[in-house]
Write a protein that binds this DNA or RNA. Structure first.
Lengths: 335, 335
DNA sequence: CTGAAAGCGCTTACAG
DNA sequence: CTGAAAGCGCTTACAG
């Protein structure tokens, strides 16, 4: 591929001058500027970003690490990130961890080697390995999921509030008391906070629930299905409502209920975190706490870019975005 | 950040030797290998991929260019790409064009500057600018959408066949004849092929349809809505069925019908290309041609990687993946 | 207004 | 088994 030297030779100037022209530096004779531009075009010149990055010590690239881009929540979040990034001349590399700590670590190290200027991460780990980045001085911003250890900017949803509202709705509006929560893993802040909101609502209404009404699993359909099956087949006091930790779990709940001929919401009320955009637009069924995923991604990216540009921000920022509570049918409203 | 020289100095060897150790080259004294590895670890060394790429003339990075990652079809396709890529030590940069030819061109040029090893693209253009890549010898593989000009590997869905089956189903099973197609733009091969399949089915059954039953628009909900509104409000012979060019258009159709109190499928049958995974799992409503998006992405990526690795493949490959025809309720079955 | 030179951090052909 | 040196393709401080 043609480089700056080829152009220089043909234009009868030094490579330095070519570089200056190509970078729009001031103080160049207009005629040489024109000539260089002309020749660059003729030769179909494409500047080598690698060389530039190596010299300038920045790549204009960031990494986005999430569990699975296929989860509509992350898809939308990713779009928010990409838009903000590209508006600022940055590209983004996507990484899927599938909630695997080892994969996360591997990606983190790889992204470091690739010298990305910063990292956006919805971590499935405890963030122990993040100190690496502090040391190397590459900024890292948390998105969706909180991590205890380090002193990092953080953009999340208000999980506790959403869970609280959802649970309270079941209690206050539908007079339902026997509510179980099917939660994601406790290693994730989202799970812990949602459980907290759920418990707060129960507590405020002085509802005592057996411990085994809090079931810890994964954010997957299969878990929702299995856990619901167990509840519905169990003898003893009948469960009246389920709070699904996320949308995938909710699908599992619905499938299990269907299989057993249990009607939602008539026989069992259901509320969930996260919405399915497309499904809801056609079938407004699930009562859900919908998070502003796009904004979350866009804002987190903005924070990251600020850190990258070295804007002097004294302390760490923590933004908590309120979810929108969408009251639909699965809770028992609008039957 | 520490580099190979720092390690060399501390280990009392040359940078060349450090490089050899780090790259697992054979023929090194075990003791120096150990020493270098040890020191690299102590210094928290992270090899600079930029420098390596510059020297080796490859980045182990590919670009995926689609219109909108937020479209579930592309989301799944993207996951297929990312999985295949990362299994082979490649990372992928995502680009959203929003069906804007200028954006596409800009991304293409940018990716060239970043010296990605190859490009995967669902193009919204006619591919005129692709010759650039031929010249520069960076491989490019078409996915989902065909482009006439160049001699490129290509993995697409069988749009004609899917459209044919869907239309034929409406005709044969439901005895519906007045079927309109709401198509995406004619600049896209998917649109053209779907129209072809639709026409073929009509032709085979000797059904003559007025020209204005073929409506060209965009792959967006709003177009589906507007076009349906016009049909339903129009005087004259009543339309009996709609073939939606894709899932977004189908949503528009449904919304328009609802607004006017037209029942689907009782008053109007509907079939569509592309499915909504999640919606369908809960509400199996839309009769649709579902494409193997993950496979499409994965396979296209595989082709690209082969080209990148320079495997000698004589001629261009063209794979056409059959869609799965999902007969559900919107066509009139299983009412 | 422009050039010569150093340097970003690697890899590798050539020698020994 | 290992080192010195060149080179990948840029940018930029220093001179003039």
């Amino acid at each position: 591929m043609t480089n700056i030297y080829d152009i220089a030779k043909k234009a009868g100037v030094s490579p330095a001058t070519v570089s200056r022209v190509l970078n729009n530096k001031p103080g160049l004779k207009e005629s040489t500027r024109q000539k260089v531009l002309q020749i660059a075009k003729e030769l179909n010149y494409s500047p080598n970003y690698l060389a530039r990055s190596l010299k300038k010590q920045r790549t204009d690239t960031i990494a986005l690490i999430v569990s699975d881009i296929t989860n509509p929540f992350f898809t939308t979040l990713a779009r928010g990130v990409e838009d903000k990034a590209s508006q600022n001349g940055f590209n983004v590399i996507f990484c899927n961890t599938d909630e695997d700590i080892k994969k996360e670590k591997a990606y983190l190290e790889l992204m470091l080697q690739r010298r990305v200027d910063g990292i956006l991460i919805a971590s499935c780990s405890d963030g122990k390995t993040f100190s690496l980045f502090r040391k190397k001085n590459v900024p890292l911003v948390l998105v969706d999921r909180r991590v205890n250890k380090p002193n990092l900017d953080c953009v999340t949803g208000d999980n506790e509030e959403g869970a609280y509202q959802l649970t309270k709705h079941l209690i206050d509006t539908h007079n339902i008391k026997k509510i179980a929560i099917l939660s994601g893993p406790l290693t994730l802040s989202t799970s812990r906070e949602r459980i907290q909101g759920y418990q707060k609502a129960l507590y405020e209404s002085s509802i005592k629930i057996p411990e085994n009404y809090t079931v810890i699993g994964t954010y997957k359909e299969d878990f929702g299905y299995q856990a619901t099956m167990e509840f519905l087949k169990k003898k003893g006091p009948k469960i009246e409502g389920i709070f699904a930790g996320n949308n995938f779990i909710a699908i599992g709940v619905i499938k299990a209920a269907r299989e057993l001929g249990i009607r939602i919401p008539e026989d069992l009320a259901l509320v969930t975190f996260d919405d399915f955009e497309f499904a809801s637009s056609l079938f407004p069924f699930l009562t859900a706490a919908k998070q502003p995923a796009y904004t979350m991604g866009s804002l987190a990216c903005e924070f990251l870019l600020q850190r990258i540009k070295g804007e002097k921000i004294k302390e760490r920022r923590e933004v908590v975005l309120k979810p929108e509570i969408l009251i639909r049918r699965s809770c028992g409203c609008q039957r």
